[in-house]
Design a protein around this nucleic acid. Structure first.
Length: 284
DNA sequence: CCGACGTCCTGCTAGC
DNA sequence: TGCTAGCAGGACGTCG
């Protein structure tokens, strides 16, 4: 479900009820999660104040006085702040009771998500650094263009690789490629430097717009207060198979790429022909 | 080394 | 009306 804009929205919406509060009690619904929950973690959390709530890529970091919680929403995960007396929804795996009468609740029906505790911040940093490239808003133009030039994968596949750029998922990969007018199958190293640079700016623009709309709610996604996002109303290609392109009226097409459904306009995102030949000829 | 593919899990729905 | 194959926003291990 959630990509960078959804995760950013969750972080912003749970932060006010969470920062400065103290965890009083931990209720575990199901220990057997993707990352098994340890009883020691529960003990470590009690009496701890929450110092900050942040995001890195699609990961949520709840910083405590001693260590941090690290959460990932997978496809169907929800992290919400609710009054303690509110009914407990099915698939609620973890609840943290706070000293303001609220609970932080983690629920996830498909259980592709995870939540774990790191007592050692260096280990947490290591864990994230091993997986994640730069934030899309911090991409250095030169590095980005060079990284793409090194990869022969289809550009769509590259965008889904979190170690290249952190936070882009299936929806925003498709939406960004449409906005940049690049065919999803274009081999990354065949993009001209100008195209690669345009794509870098486009990704940041699309993500920022999605954050303004509180993310996209297709089915499961809710923010930290249980509200739906609105960016699904702005989609140009995602989920619009056979519907007319908003630019040129050509029917949007769907194909399978990197095992994911991929949406594009065959007219606006026509495959470029023979452009890179001149480039490699000159580079020697 | 890089890239493609299957797997983890539950729930919904398009199409028969 | 009822059943089921296929699909869903992600990440990771394995294989070629």
């Amino acid at each position: 479900m959630p990509e960078l804009p959804e995760v950013e929205t969750v972080v912003r919406t749970i932060r006010p009820g969470l920062v400065g509060r103290t965890i009083l009690k931990v209720y575990v619904g199901r220990k057997k999660l993707r990352v098994p929950w340890s009883g020691r973690w529960s003990a470590a959390l009690v009496r701890q104040p929450v110092l900050a709530v942040n995001r890195r890529g699609k990961w949520i970091i709840v910083e405590l006085r001693q260590g941090s919680l690290l959460g990932h929403l997978g496809m169907t995960g929800q992290l919400t702040i609710q009054p303690a007396e509110r009914a407990i929804a099915p698939h609620t795996h973890l609840r943290l009771e706070l000293d303001n009468g609220l609970q932080l609740r983690f629920r996830d029906e498909r259980r592709f998500g995870s939540i774990q505790y790191f007592g050692d911040l260096r280990l947490l940093q290591q864990y994230l650094d091993a997986r994640l490239g730069p934030e899309p808003f911090d991409l250095v133009a030169g590095h980005w263009v060079a990284a793409l030039a090194r990869s022969r994968r289809p550009i769509k596949t590259a965008l889904l690789d979190q170690s290249l750029v952190a936070g882009v998922g299936n929806i925003y990969a498709d939406e960004s490629l449409f906005a940049a007018r690049i065919h999803p199958k274009t081999s990354a190293h065949r993009l001209t430097p100008a195209q690669a640079e345009a794509l870098r700016r486009t990704i940041a623009k699309v993500l920022a717009r999605a954050i303004d709309h509180h993310g996209s709610s297709i089915r499961n996604y809710l923010d930290g207060t249980g509200e739906r996002g609105q960016f699904q109303n702005e989609f140009r290609v995602y989920g619009r198979t056979d519907e007319p392109c908003r630019r040129c009226r050509t029917p949007i097409q769907r194909m399978r790429l990197a095992g994911r459904s991929t949406h594009f306009c065959p007219n606006c995102q026509a495959r470029s022909r023979g452009r890179p030949a001149a480039r490699s000829a000159r580079s020697r």
